[in-house]
Amino acid sequence: DVVAFRWLAAQQAPDFRSIARFRKRHLSSLGNVFLQALELCRAAGMVSLGQVALDGTKVRANASRRKAMSYARLTEKQKVLADEVSALLADADAIDDAEDARFGKDKRGDELPPELARRESRLVKLAEARAGLEADAAVRARKEAEKKARDKGDDDDIAAQKGDDAAKNAVVRPKAQRNFTDPDSRIMKTADGSFHYAYNAQAIVDADHQIIVATTLTNIGVDVEQVVPLVEKLHATTGVLPRQVLADAGYCSATNLDYAKTVEDGSDGRTEFFIATGRVKHGERVPEVPRGR
C-alpha cells in the first residue's frame, strides 16, 4: 500500500491469480534473484554472518475454519454421499429405462443430472482430503519410528524398515482436520492466542543490517524442527557458517542441542549456538548466578 507505487500504477493492481501464476512460472528464477540480492549485500559489507538470529511468524492462510472437516466426519460423510450417489444412479437408471420404453433407445442426453454431478464431485473432494490425512499420518509415524530407532542405536537400514512398518500401520487421529479451501494449511496458534489455518514463516537474519540470509515456509506449527534445515540452507547458500546463531526457547530440543554441538565441534569453535532453554515471563527477574564462597 505504498502511495507512490499506487500512483505510478494508476491504481491498477494485478489479480492475485496473475501473481500466483507468475511466481509458479518463474519459481527457479526468483530463487536466483534472492541469492543475487544476498551476494550484493555481502559485497556491500551489509552481511558479515558474525551474528545471526533465527525466528518465525505465523502467516494466516486464506482458508476458513468452516471449510474444514475432521477425519471421523470425512469417513461418515463419505458413506452418506456414497449411498446418496447410489440412490441417484438407481433413480437415473429407472428413468432411463422408462424413457427408452417410451421414446426408444439412444434418444436421451449423456450428461449427468446436476444433483448427481454435484454429489459425485463432493465425494471426490472428500476422498482426496481423506487420502491427504492418511498420507500425513503415515509421514508422521515414519519420522517418529525412525527417530526412536536411531535413538536406540539402530543403523539406517533398520530405522528405515521400522519407519516403513510404522507408515503402513499409521492410524489417523479422528479429530485430524483437512481444509478444503487450502489443503496445505494447518491449524496453528497465532500471536494473539487464537487458532487459525496458517503457515509458519521462518527466517535467519544477519544482525548487522537486518538482512535476511535464509528463509523457508512450512506448515509445521512448531519452530523446533526448523533449526537444522535453516542453518543448513544458510550454509548451502553462502558457503560459510555464522560465528553466532541465536534462537529462542521455541527452538530448544535435545536434537537441536546435539546438532549445535556437532557443528561447533566441526568448526573448531568458530561457530557457536545460543539457544534459550526457557522463557522468562514479563516482569520476572532472572535469578542471579550462584557465586562461590
Rank of each mutant, 00 (worst) to 15 (best):
R173H: 15
R130H: 09
G193M: 11
T237F: 02
R73Y: 04
A4P: 04
L123V: 01
K189V: 09
A20M: 14
V47Y: 03
K189F: 07
T215M: 08
N179C: 15
K105W: 02
N219C: 10
T216R: 08
F16Y: 14
A249F: 02
H209E: 04
F273R: 05
D91V: 06
K125C: 00
V263K: 08
Q244D: 08
A131N: 14
A247E: 05
T190F: 12
F22Y: 15
L40N: 08
L27Y: 08
P114Y: 09
A191N: 12
G153S: 09
R65Y: 07
N200I: 05
N169P: 02
Y199G: 06
R66L: 06
P229Q: 07
L81P: 00
G56E: 02
V228F: 00
A20D: 15
T215Q: 10
S18R: 15
V3R: 14
A90D: 14
L126G: 03
A94L: 11
D151E: 15
R108D: 05
L38W: 10
V59Q: 04
E76A: 08
L74H: 11
K143T: 11
F195T: 00
A117D: 14
T262I: 06
P183I: 13
V280E: 10
A203F: 12
R130W: 08
A137Q: 07
A98F: 10
D93N: 12
A149C: 03
F274M: 03
F180D: 14
L126F: 10
R102E: 12
A101H: 08
A247P: 08
A138F: 01
R291Q: 12
T216Q: 09
D93K: 13
G250N: 07
A20E: 15
Y71A: 11
G250K: 02
N256A: 01
V33N: 03
T262H: 09
Y259R: 04
K77R: 15
S28V: 13
E146L: 02
R25K: 14
L230Y: 00
D1R: 13
K105A: 02
D258F: 03
L81Q: 07
A198C: 11
A137I: 11
L49N: 05
